[in-house]
C-alpha cells in the first residue's frame, strides 16, 4: 500500500510544488485550502437544505394531520413523491430538467438548485417524523384546544406543536446528520464540495488514501458536531415529567 505522504495537502494545486507554509500565495491554493473550501460548501449546502427541509417538512407533516381530506392528500402525495425517487435522480431533475422546462430558473445558480433538491428530498422524511410526533399526542389535547374556543391554527400553534416538536427532536437529529452525508451527491452536478474534491484531488495527486481519509474524517466531524448541537437543544427544551425528560 506504499508509504504515507501527507505532504500532498501542502502541494500547490496548479504545479504540484510543495508550498512552504502549506498555504499558497498570490491566488494559488494548496490542496489543504481546496479541501477546506470544499468543506465549507458541504456545510453550506447541508445547512441551507436543512432549513428548507425543516420548513417544508413541518408544513407537510402538519397538513397530513389536519381534518381536511384535501390537505391530507396534498401532504401524502408530497411525501410519497419525494420519498420514492432516488436522491441522485432528484438532483439531476433539479439541475438538468427543471431549468430547461422553466427557463427563468436557468438564472438560478446550481448551488441553490441542489439546496432545493436535497431540502425537498429530506422534507419528505421530516414530514413523516412530524406527523408521527403530532399523532403521538393524545387526541384529548386537540379537543381541549378546540373546546376552549381556539381555532384550528391556534390549537396547532399553542397546544399541539410545542409538544410535538420537542418529541421529534431525536429523529430530526438523525435526519440532520443524514443531510450532511446526503449532500455528497452534489458532486454529480459539479458542486465543489468534499466528495467532488476527493474525486478530483485523488485523480490529480494519486494519493487517494490520504485524501479519502481526510475527507471521511471531515464528514465524521461535521455529523458529530450536528449531533452535539442537537443534543444541546434537546436538553434545553425537554418536557419535564416525560420519559427521558428528567427534572
Amino acid at each position: 500500500m506504499g508509504n504515507w505522504d501527507w505532504q500532498v495537502f501542502c502541494k500547490n494545486t496548479i504545479d504540484g510544488e510543495v508550498m512552504p507554509r502549506c498555504f499558497g500565495s498570490g491566488g494559488d491554493i494548496t490542496y489543504l485550502q481546496w479541501m477546506l473550501s470544499a468543506w465549507g460548501w458541504t456545510i453550506s449546502v447541508s445547512l441551507l437544505a436543512l432549513m428548507v427541509a425543516l420548513v417544508v417538512g413541518s408544513l407537510m407533516g402538519i397538513l397530513r394531520t389536519t381534518p381536511s381530506k384535501t390537505l391530507v392528500l396534498i401532504g401524502n402525495a408530497w411525501t410519497e413523491l419525494f420519498r420514492n425517487i432516488p436522491l441522485l435522480v432528484q438532483i439531476f431533475l433539479w439541475y438538468h430538467v427543471i431549468p430547461s422546462l422553466f427557463l427563468p430558473l436557468q438564472q438560478v445558480p446550481s448551488f441553490l438548485l441542489v439546496v432545493l433538491g436535497l431540502g425537498f428530498f429530506t422534507s419528505a422524511r421530516i414530514a413523516e417524523q412530524v406527523k408521527a410526533g403530532i399523532e403521538s399526542l393524545s387526541k384529548g389535547q386537540r379537543y381541549a384546544g378546540l373546546a376552549i374556543g381556539l381555532t384550528l391554527p391556534q390549537t396547532y400553534r399553542f397546544v399541539l406543536l410545542p409538544m410535538a416538536f420537542r418529541i421529534v427532536i431525536p429523529p430530526l437529529t438523525s435526519e440532520s446528520m443524514n443531510i450532511i452525508k446526503n449532500s455528497s451527491v452534489a458532486f454529480a452536478v459539479s458542486i465543489s464540495e468534499l466528495t467532488m474534491f476527493a474525486m478530483q484531488a485523488q485523480e490529480e495527486t494519486s494519493r487517494g488514501i490520504e485524501i479519502y481519509l481526510a475527507v471521511s474524517l471531515l464528514y465524521f466531524l461535521s455529523a458529530f458536531a450536528v449531533n452535539r448541537v442537537a443534543l444541546f437543544i434537546e436538553n434545553r427544551v425537554q418536557v419535564p415529567g416525560m420519559i427521558g425528560g428528567g427534572k
Partner: peptide, 17 residues
C-alpha cells in the same frame, strides 16, 4: 458515519490495491 458515495469510492480505490 461516512456517506455511501465515499464508501463506494473507498472500495473502488482499496480493492485493487
Amino acid at each position: 458515519s461516512i456517506p455511501l458515495v465515499m464508501v463506494i469510492l473507498w472500495f473502488f480505490l482499496l480493492i485493487p490495491l
